[in-house]
Each structure stands twice: as C-alpha cells, then as structure tokens.
Simulated assay, not measured.
Amino acid sequence: MKTLARLFLSLVCAALGAVLYVLLCNQACPWDCYRPPAQWGSPTASTAPRLQGYSRVPDGKPLKRTQCRRCAMVSSSGQMLGSRLGQAIDGEECVLRMNHAPTAGYEQDVGTRSTVRVVSHTSVPLLLRNQRYFFQQCRDTLYIIWGPARKMSREKGGSTYQALLKVMQMYPHLQIYTLTDEKMNYCDNIFQKETGKNRMKSGSFLSTGWFTMILAMELCEQIRVFGMVSDSYCREKNHSSVPYHYFEQGKLDECRMYLMHERAQRAGHRFITEKTIFSRWAKSKNITFTHPSWAGG
C-alpha cells in the first residue's frame, strides 16, 4: 500500500509540475512568439508541400509550408476598433495580417500574433521606419512582399528588392518571400476571369487584401476574416463611419475611400469588386466573415 501511495503522489507531482511549466511559459513568452513555426510548417521542411509563386530572398528558393487548419485573416479596417476580438484572433492556428498594420496598442481588438504578413511594395518603406517593431520583436513572422516587376525583380535589381536584400543582411533570421512574375500574372488572370475585365486596361490595381486572400486559400483549410465589410455595406444608408485604417483615426473614412476607388477611371483599387468576388468564393471555400458578419453568396 505504501508503494502505491508513493507512486500516486509521484504522478500527482509530475502532473502539477507540467501544468506549472505551461502556465509560466504562457506568461514569459509573448503570444506572437510563443507558438513555434514548426507547428505549422518550416520553409526547409522536406515533407512540406511547395506553394507555387513565392520566391525567398535572397536565394530564390520556393516557399514550403504545411497547411494551417484554421486561419484568422485580419483586416486593417477601422471596423476592428472596439471589436475586442484580439483573443479570438490569437486563438486561431495562423494569423494573417496586411502591410504595416500594428498590433501594439490595439491588442484587445486585433490580437498580438502575426504568423504571416502580406505587404505591398509601397508599404516596405513603412516597415523600414519601424524595424525594431517589425523585424526584432518576433523572429517567426513570414513576410510575403508583392509588387510590379520593375520594383521587385531579383535579376534586374529592382529598388524594393534591393531594400529587402539590405533588410536580410541586417536581420538574417527573417523569412522574406516575394511573388514571382508568374504569380503576379496568375493573380491578374483570376481578376479577369472573375470580372471579365483586363486589370491593366480597366485601370485597376489589385489590393493587398486580394493577394492575402489568394494566399489564405492556398495555405488554410478554414479562413475566418475579421473586419471586412460586404460589397453592399457602403451603399447602405445607415452604415457606420469608421477610418480606412484602424491605426489612422481621423483620416479618410473607409466607405468614402472604397467608393472613390471603385469609381476611379484609372489607378483605382476595386475594393468593392474584390469583396463581391470573395463572397462568391465563400460559397465553395471554407471562408466566413466576422465583425461585421455576413454570408458569402
């Protein structure tokens, strides 16, 4: 009996020790760095599938990642202000963010973790202005940079690509990938297939949200989109007025920006058109829209 009692006490102590270790680690490690990337794939993992069209800086190697079961795709919209969705976002397996949208100061609404950040070439200088925040605080974020060939060409030394090379020299631990020319053309072709319009001839610019959604559909089994309005939202009489970006309060209203770009003859981001397309994709893909909540159709 004494032997069994000692064995029981040993098992209880071991279990308590394991629980205490997890609790201490949760407090000691920030959420955005706590979950190691190995749990959702490694760029050098031989068993991970290759995602077509993403080229690593500086060696050009393809992106290899295992799929994420559940993803949070976080909009930069002012809709996120006051949402208090940070915990729900951090609770998803992978978190996708866009451009230079910060988490610091907005943790309750947008969370803290950043598994992937999809960035326009025009936002790269904004990342460089805050290198400590983007490149030093967490070493696990994967950066996907998109832009035109004249800016992004590895072979021709595009200006944005040169800037990324300098970043890699300063922070060799970073994971930075660019979209290949073939991938950019692929995204253009999807736009034309869905709208019947040639992107360039129609004077349209694709948004970072477009490239993020395409990546999400390749990377994620389930996509939960936070803070993205429907295509009809801005035409509703009683729609709320929020800033275009949650971190740029007092600047241009979101719906004014959307409608202005949708009506532009040239150089317009077709935000509303893109949301119409996302809505159609949600019928066949596992995509849901949260805050505001709306159904694809």
Score class of each variant (00 low, 15 high):
residue 245 H to K: 14
residue 283 K to D: 11
residue 100 H to D: 15
residue 52 Q to P: 13
residue 293 S to T: 13
residue 115 T to V: 02
residue 47 T to N: 14
residue 98 M to K: 11
residue 245 H to M: 09
residue 79 Q to M: 14
residue 224 R to N: 10
residue 102 P to N: 11
residue 276 T to A: 09
residue 227 G to S: 04
residue 23 L to M: 15
residue 29 C to V: 15
residue 19 V to R: 09
residue 221 E to M: 02
residue 102 P to K: 11
residue 180 T to S: 15
residue 174 L to F: 02
residue 133 Y to K: 01
residue 253 D to M: 02
residue 93 E to Y: 04
residue 210 W to F: 11
residue 95 V to D: 01
residue 199 R to V: 14
residue 74 V to I: 10
residue 21 Y to D: 14
residue 233 Y to D: 07
residue 217 M to G: 04
residue 259 L to N: 00
residue 160 T to I: 03
residue 23 L to S: 12
residue 12 V to C: 10
residue 97 R to E: 00
residue 93 E to W: 03
residue 190 I to F: 14
residue 32 D to E: 06
residue 29 C to H: 07
residue 53 G to I: 06
residue 18 A to T: 10
residue 192 Q to C: 12
residue 151 K to H: 13
residue 117 R to L: 06
residue 18 A to Y: 11
residue 283 K to Q: 14
residue 173 H to C: 01
residue 151 K to N: 14
residue 213 M to I: 05
residue 35 R to M: 04
residue 155 E to S: 15
residue 9 L to A: 03
residue 58 P to H: 02
residue 140 D to R: 04
residue 296 G to V: 08
residue 206 L to T: 00
residue 149 A to P: 08
residue 17 G to K: 10
residue 187 C to S: 15
residue 169 Q to P: 09
residue 195 T to E: 09
residue 230 S to V: 01
residue 32 D to K: 08
residue 137 Q to D: 05
residue 177 Y to V: 06
residue 80 M to Q: 15
residue 91 G to A: 13
residue 261 H to K: 07
residue 226 F to K: 01
residue 207 S to V: 02
residue 74 V to M: 02
residue 250 G to H: 06
residue 5 A to H: 02
residue 50 R to A: 12
residue 233 Y to F: 12
residue 235 R to F: 12
residue 51 L to F: 11
residue 232 S to G: 07
residue 53 G to S: 08
residue 122 T to Y: 11
residue 224 R to T: 10
residue 169 Q to G: 11
residue 12 V to A: 03
residue 257 M to C: 08
residue 20 L to P: 08
residue 177 Y to P: 09
residue 12 V to E: 01
residue 217 M to C: 02
residue 105 G to C: 09
residue 107 E to P: 01
residue 87 Q to H: 08
residue 37 P to T: 08
residue 238 N to I: 03
residue 161 Y to N: 01
residue 45 A to N: 12
